[in-house]
């Protein structure tokens, strides 16, 4: 392993044109994904976490969405600057993605084995027979029982959890070095969610690939992620080692999210959620976008837009985009 990150996103900005005007769905986001690590990208709806993934994969809805600034460097190659055809091949071969809703991502009229096998036929020039054998092998690998018998079934004949396994099988087919999973378990039941998270963690370890897990659920990734990136209104607001970020949250939004989760061990305690609602991207607050909801906000926050920066007394890697990160961390600034 080398020290250069596998994926390096710098100052990424994505603009969407809507009927009501233009929005910056992602606004100056930078982060790295190292070889073999798991990064959790966390945020609520409208935070820009899925749009960031779409930009990396080159699947922004056109013509509404467009990358307007920044770079996405994968293994030394700038995906935004290179020849689109070569980039498309790279994205198919080395970067794969799993989506929230497996049913709408699978073609309902083709047998699942054929759809998995298509990866081998198109990208590797495999024969039908070889592709089918490889599909069965992959289905077994992702834990689909009786794979040999079920390879000729259609997507609707599988349960939600099994469909997500099929999507994961397709994503793994070409042995990607980076897998991006966008809310991979959100549509699944709790017991099935646990199965899929364990499967992803096992596969990541065995294949040595890097994993980007995008989710709104802070709990679901805590077991498997190495690092966390919190997003709010298109910006990165906090990042660092996941345990460091969860245990020593230094951004008021991260703190608010943690306080919003009902605690299994402290039932009936009143929750202290973030007040208000996420902002309208068409009409973002001045300064720090979070300031109208922030218990720590001062006049400075409505003028001066904070950038991600290291926090005094915490590891260099841990960064927060808050003027008062140290005070938030120390609990010195009591919420008003």
């Amino acid at each position: 392993m080398t020290d250069t990150p596998l994926l390096s996103v710098r100052d990424l900005a994505v603009r969407f044109r809507t009927g009501a005007g233009q929005v910056r769905a992602v606004d100056g986001v930078s982060f790295d994904v190292r070889r073999g690590e798991t990064l959790a990208v966390l945020g609520e709806s409208g935070s820009g976490k899925s749009v960031t993934a779409q930009a990396i994969m080159g699947i922004l809805p056109r013509p509404a969405g467009e990358v307007v600034a920044g770079s996405i460097v994968y293994d030394g190659r700038d995906l935004l600057a290179e020849d689109p055809n070569r980039v498309r091949k790279l994205r198919g071969d080395e970067i794969a993605m799993v989506f929230q809703d497996p049913l709408s991502s699978l073609n309902p009229v083709f047998r699942v084995g054929w759809q998995i096998g298509e990866m081998f036929r198109r990208h590797r020039g495999a024969s039908r027979r070889d592709a089918r054998a490889a599909a069965v092998e992959l289905m077994e690998r992702v834990g689909i029982p009786a794979a040999r018998r079920r390879v000729d079934d259609f997507p609707h004949q599988f349960s939600g959890g099994m469909r997500q396994r099929i999507m994961i099988a397709m994503a793994l087919a070409l042995k990607p070095r980076l897998l991006i999973a966008d809310e991979p378990t959100t549509a699944l039941d709790v017991t099935v969610q646990a199965q899929i998270m364990r499967l992803l963690a096992d596969l990541r370890r065995e294949e040595g690939m890097a994993l980007v897990l995008i989710t709104h659920d802070l709990g679901v990734v805590a077991d498997v992620a190495d690092r966390a990136l919190l997003m709010y209104a298109g910006r990165a607001v906090e990042t660092g080692d996941i345990r460091e970020v969860y245990d020593h949250a230094a951004h008021p939004y991260t703190r608010g999210l943690m306080a919003s989760i009902p605690d299994l061990d402290a039932p009936r305690e009143r929750l202290t959620p973030v007040r208000g609602a996420p902002p309208n991207l068409l009409d973002l607050p001045s300064g720090c976008s979070f300031h109208p909801r922030c218990p720590h906000a001062t006049d400075r926050c409505s003028v001066d837009d904070p950038v991600l920066r290291p926090i005094d007394g915490r590891p260099e890697e841990h960064r927060s985009a808050c003027h008062y990160a140290e005070e938030v961390l120390a609990g010195e600034r009591e919420p008003v």
């Binding site: 349960s159 099994m162 199965q195 805590a222 969860y246 299994l264």
Partner: peptide, 27 residues
């Protein structure tokens, strides 16, 4: 028991004893 053990906890490292029961299959 399986349902409870599958609930994601925000800070699993605070509960090192917690063993997960992952049941197979679907409903």
């Amino acid at each position: 028991q399986a349902l409870l053990s599958a609930v994601p906890v925000p800070r699993p490292w605070d509960q090192p004893q917690r063993e997960s029961i992952i049941i197979g299959g679907d409903v």
